[in-house]
Each structure stands twice: as C-alpha cells, then as structure tokens.
Design a protein around this nucleic acid. Sequence first.
DNA 1: GCAAGGTC
Length: 658
Amino acid sequence: MRILCVAEKPSIAKAVANHLAGRVVTHNVNGTPYVKNYCFDYNFRQWGQSSVTFTSAQGHITSSDFGPRYKSWQSCLPIALFEADINTTIDDKMKPVAENIRQQSRYAQIVFIWTDCDREGEYIGSEIRDLAVAAKPGIQVKRARFSNIERNHVIQAAGNPVDLDERQVQAVAARIELDFRLGTAFTRMQTLALKPLVEQADPGYKVISYGSCQFPTLGFVVDRYLRVKNFKPEPFWYIKVSHKKDDINVNFTWSRGHLFDRMAVTIMFERCLAAKQAKVVEMLTKPTSKWRPLPLTTLELQKCGSRFLRMTGQEVMKHAEKLYTAGWISYPRTETDQFSKDMDLKKLVEKQQQSQQWGQYAEMLMGGGFNQPRVGRNNDEAHPPIHPVNFVVPTQLSEPEKRVYEFVTRRFLACCSEDAKGVSAELGIEWGVEKFNAKGLTVLQRNYLDVYPYDKWESSQQLPPFTVGETFIPMEAKITDGKTTAPSYLTEPELLSLMDANGIGTDATMHEHVEKIKDRNYVMTRSIGGSRAPAAVAESAETTRGGRGGRGRGRGGRGGAAATARGGSGMLEFIPTTLGVALIEGYDQVGFETSLGKPHLRKEMELQMKAICAGTKTKYEVVQQNLDQYRNVYSRSVQQIDVLKTAIRKYVLQQNVG
DNA sequence: GCAAGGTC
C-alpha cells in the first residue's frame, strides 16, 4: 500500500513521522521552506506493510472572496454581500502546499489525515480531502484521532483510523461564510456612511471595521468604561473593633461588612457598648493549603503574561511561538489544562535539573517530591498543556523569551509539586448580638511556592491564644465610615476572561482581536497608575478616578494605591476612544437585544455550530437564519444611521447635540 | 481598504 499522511502543520508531520518510522528520508517541497515530505515504511495494523509519505498543510488552505462584480466598494450596496457569490480559492501562499498534496495523492491509495482534533482541524481535513480526491478520484480517505504526540498515543492513532466528521466540517463552513458576509457587509456600510465624519477629527483614518469578534471585544471595554464614568460613590458605615492580648493587637472584622444606613449602625454599636463584655465563641485552628496551579493553557499564559511579565497577550504569544519553533516548549495554543496519564512528565522534569535557577528544585522533585499535576476541566483533545520540552541555556534566548520560558518552566514544575501547606486560625466573638471575627495564617511548608514566585501566600500575624467562653471588654471600638469606590477600567486579563466566558475568539486568536481594536483606534491602553492617555474620553474619565482602589471597605486609595492593589504597575488598562464609545452606544440604540456590540449574537452562533455538530441543524438552516437576523440589524442600522452619526458627532467631534 | 480561522 502507498499511504499519504497529511498533518495540519509541519511540526506535527515531523514528530509523528519520527515516531512511526525506523528510518526517514526527508524531501523538500518546491516553493515552501516549511513543508517537508517525510518518506518511510510502516506496518499499519489495518493496511499492512506500506510505503508512507508524511506531509502537512500550513493551517487553512483555501480562502473566500467575492466575485469581480462585488470586489469594488462602489460596485454594489453592502447588503448585496449577504447573498453575493463567494469564490473559494487557494491563496497564492498555499499554492505550493496544495500542489504537493495533489501530486503526492496521485501515488497513493489512501490519504490519511492527521489534522488537529478540533473543529477547525476537521475543516482543514476536508480541504485536504478535496484536493486529494480531485487529483485522484476514488482515493480512500481516513482520519487519525490523536490528542498529543506521545509515541504510544500516535501509534494507537495510526492503527485506528476513523472517518472525517462531516458535521464538524459543515459547522466551520457556516462560521466562515457568516463571518465573511457579515464582516465585509457591515464594514463597508459603516465605513462608507461614517468615515467622512470621523475624518473631520482624524484625517488619516482608514476603515471602520466590523467583525463578529472585534465588536463584542470592544463592547466589553466600553461597558466597563461607562460603568466607571457613571459611578456615584455611596457612603457607608461599619463597626471597627480591636483588642490587645499578650501584646498582640487583633483587628476584628464585622460580620455584617458595612451598611449604608448610619443610624442603624449607630443603634447596633450602642447595643454593643451596652453589652460591655465581648465573648469568644469560636477559636479554632485547622490545616489549610494553597493549591498548586493548574497545567498551563494559552489563555492562562496570556493572563499571567500581563500580570507577572508585563507583556501583552500579543507579545507573550510572539515569544511563545518562537520558543515553540525552536523546540524549547510545547505547542503554545491549547485549551487543555490536564496532562494525559500516559505522558512521561518526570522525563521533562529531569531535563530541568541542569538549570542554575531551578535545577535544584527539579532535583528535589526527581528525588521523590514529584506529584501528578491536578486535572483541570478543559480538554481540547488536540494539544497537551503548555510545558517545557527541553532545557535551554538562558544565554541562547532574548530577554523576553527568557522570561516566558522561565514562566512556562516554573509553572510546569509547580504543577508537579505538592500544594503549599499551612494552618489557619479563626477567632470569632460575639459582642451583644453582633458578631466579629479575625483570621490568622501560618505557612508551614511552602512546597510549590518555592519554584513559583508569582503566587503569594504568607503567614499573617499570629493570633494570641483565646479560649472559647472567655470574655473581655474590647480596648477599641468605633464607627468608621467609607465610600464605595468606582470599578477600575478593564485590564487585559479581565478582557481575555470576558472573551473566554462569552466564546469570543479562540485561544489562538483572542490576542489578535485585542490588537485589532487598538489598531482600529477603538481603544487605547495605558499603564495602571502610569501616564495618562491623550484621548478626550480618557481625560474626562480622569475626574471620576479619585477614590478608586479599595474594594469593599472604602480605603479611599488613589490611582497609585490601586495599581499596587491590583498586581503591580506596568499592567495595562483599556480605555475606549471617543470613536469606540460612539460605535457601541450607537448600535445599542439602534438594536435592542441584537446590538452588534454585545456578545449575544456570537454566543448564539456558537450554539448553532454545536447544533450542526450534533446533527440537529444543517449548515444551510444556520446560515439562512443568521443572515435573516442580521439583515434586520442591517436595515435598522441603515434606517437609523442618523443615530450612529449623532453618536459619532457627540463623541468624536464633541459637538453639542442636545 | 472589508472577517475569523488556521500557521511560519
């Protein structure tokens, strides 16, 4: 038999071929430096001794475009793009890859597809199938099911081929068509209608783009901005109690937190005073632990990057990809936070023993400290969590790459460690009818914290020994007041979490949507507590900033204090530009629950894709249904374009429009 | 000049 195997990307082709082959002969492919053909013999369980060529695509092979009649922006009304013919062609860049698959198919009886086991991978598989079948009618098409590239797992997959899942293919086809039609139509419509207005304020302005991911992303930023802007501080009051014993001062927290009614607090306080004696009702210590982190996903890598490494998601991914292609870390785009049981993690820990920085810790793990990592809830069935695959001497890396590699490695070692252990103490008192409590923590074994300095868990001051039933008159007690504080602007980790929770983008693209809304000048970023942004919106926002910072108890902190409270300076916060606010507010007014700036429509589409995968809906139904719904949004937007224009004028040109 | 999804 002659078998043509095709992976989604060159790295998978190489890795799988090396697992299957005794000896591999590598051939270059004309026109592309990345894709190679790996030729070897292999005895398949189901097909017997075969001659194999293992090659790959480089992601998606085809792309969509409108016919010449619709290409020019002047050629038609944007709404025509809802049903204009779409040509699916092979991009110029992918021509050599496609030609290679065609040629190799001619020699083969079977094309065996090894794309990632996710929806997009299934679709790329269908592109490969179409090329193969066109080049060699009657060729048999099979697909490998694999979720990592461990040798045994790969051999299992090679011996148990399945069929392509046509439903997943159709689900992705629906997404592609809808994203394309809606993205292009709304982008043209709003650019043609609104650009002249925007240009009055910003002469070089290019395109006011709409996309099913970029707009909801912008919506999150605007939503938070409006909440900050419209925030009205409210005063509150609470009872503060402290007492000294054995020379240790204990501050108690009121079980009611705080109340917005001063008189009520006064009455409660007076009852406390009347009771005179406070009584200890609870004094217990119990073992506690701080859990080691979960295995690393892309989303978590990006969030930690902005918190601890002072990098944007975009930057972290750039360096992670470099480390991946150089062979230092595993594939950086994964949603999986569980290691498969058959993976040899100790072998990976062993390699880190060479490090000057964490080598000793790795040795400790090898010497018996090793613990199987926790198992998270996510598994994309395509990639393992991000982990170091080889040790690299720091001098071989650039400064930021070094930091990303260090984080990935420390995170991995932390995953393979023991939880941190400690003892928590809780002291509860009743004073009259009011309850107060105090907490203490003693850290006994730092364990994973020793290799993972990004987490903080420190012993607090010890509580003095109290016994249940003991009474005392509190040494200090008073009514204290505070003010609720405005929420802060959205940070990048928060934005990424919101996108994740609402299904906006994928692990591989989320950071691109964030970059896109910056690039379109819909939002800007600044360091928390750092220099102020030049935008007019940011300026007026400045006046609402005083007193933010303290969450819960009104500490009345200023911006600087807030920065430290939120994980250190250097982290970015997102502030919409006047244009960004205008677009979202405009669409909110035009549409009711179908505003383009809300995640609702995209969430809906995700559900419909799942329905196609489950077989309860067809691609045709989903596409038509969505087009109908968006046709509605489109015509309302055109009818009420003045609403959008007014919003733009109000913000961009700062005209008084009453 | 338009989208989002892959990947280098």
